[in-house]
């Protein structure tokens, strides 16, 4: 018994050693200055969309849309008119201004005024995520046989969306099928250029993807990476990339989980903000005075963010 316990201890220690700290020499902490809010509580944000006029839509708690007007400093929340049995995930705003989400795994819905469901399309297969590129929706189908295209693009109702970008799901030989599928769930951030950043939860890298699907992968120096097994079993997994935003100059802003201070509260969000040149060279990497959940806008050397406390705030690295 004692021998087994010893082996377990040794093995756990060895597993912990697999945690790869690339480098995270954060400089002095940058203050996060509240502007207005709160916009959301600690509920999970399952999707984000924005327009060019400073308006951001968040899918909160799977059942509400929160619209934040950064210019007017206004917040509006509407409940989605869906049954409580089927929560929504993913949020996509097309060029025509229409807003879409996934209801459950198999239904694509258009969100109308006051949270009304305007249109519904049954999907042939289960889906994990939904994003947008111009006039097309980007679908992430539930894919259990990697490698396969991570995203497919098509207009609403298109039964045969086409592979979009070079990003493919990755095999994980040592992991169960369900775990590999979970690690292949992709996220995409916002961009003010022609390239949109997308990433996997375990990688310190983003793929910058053009509307045409042309893709370039940018490794991100300085972000902490942990082993996939640890990521899958953590309550609050330390993700190298929690959010990414490309500003109008092509500078990539990355929000990373980092390591919270010892006395930090349990609020959601990342503690590190990094910036990279359009080619991926590290410009700066700084810790934050409080956790940040999303980068809502970045311009002129400063970022407007959503904090762990739900406030809209500003950060100037």
């Amino acid at each position: 018994m004692r021998r087994s316990a010893g082996i377990t201890l040794l093995a756990t220690a060895l597993a912990a050693c697999r945690t790869t700290v690339v480098r995270q020499a954060a400089e002095s902490a940058v203050p996060v200055a509240p502007l207005f809010g709160p916009a959301v509580s600690a509920e999970v944000i399952g999707g984000k969309a924005e327009d060019d006029e400073g308006r951001v839509w968040l899918l909160a708690g799977g059942s509400a849309i929160v619209r934040v007007d950064l210019e007017r400093r206004e917040i509006e929340r509407v409940a989605l008119r869906v049954s409580s049995a089927e929560l929504c995930w993913g949020l996509a705003r097309l060029a025509d201004g229409s807003l879409w989400t996934l209801k459950g795994r198999r239904t694509l819905v258009a969100i109308g005024e006051a949270g009304r469901i305007d249109r519904e399309f049954a999907l042939a297969t289960p889906h994990f995520g939904l994003f947008a590129s111009g006039e097309r929706l980007l679908y992430q189908a539930a894919e259990f046989t990697p490698p396969a295209p991570a995203l497919r693009a098509g207009i609403p109702g298109d039964e045969h969306p086409r592979p979009w970008s070079d990003v493919a799901t990755r095999p994980f030989a040592a992991l169960a099928r369900a775990s590999a599928a979970a690690l292949n769930m992709i996220s995409c951030g916002s961009s003010r250029t022609a390239e949109r950043p997308c990433w996997f939860p375990d990688e310190a890298a983003v793929s910058l993807i053009q509307a045409s699907g042309a893709t370039r992968r940018v490794p991100l120096e300085g972000l902490e990476v942990i082993a996939p097994e640890i990521l899958l079993t953590s309550d609050n997994p330390a993700r190298p990339v929690r959010d990414a935003y490309v500003d109008e100059r092509g500078v990539l802003w990355v929000l990373s989980s980092g390591r919270p201070p010892a006395d930090a509260s349990e609020r959601p969000g990342g503690w590190v903000l990094a910036r990279y040149s359009p080619r991926g060279a590290l410009i700066g990497l700084q810790s934050l005075t409080e956790p940040v959940r999303l980068i809502l806008r970045a311009s002129g050397g400063r970022a407007t963010v959503l904090t762990g406390a739900g406030m809209i705030a500003e950060v100037q690295p």
Binding site: R3, S4, I7, T8, L10, A11, T12, L14, A15, A16, A174, L175, A227, P228, E229, I230, L232, T233, S234, D235, N236, P237
Partner: peptide, 25 residues
């Protein structure tokens, strides 16, 4: 048995999960 136990642990299956995602597993 010892080897299997070690491999299981190294695979992260019982890598001291905290409650929420341990609940998923």
């Amino acid at each position: 048995k010892k080897i299997v136990l070690t491999l299981v642990v190294l695979s992260g299956v019982v890598a001291v999960p905290r409650p929420a995602m341990a609940g998923c597993t």
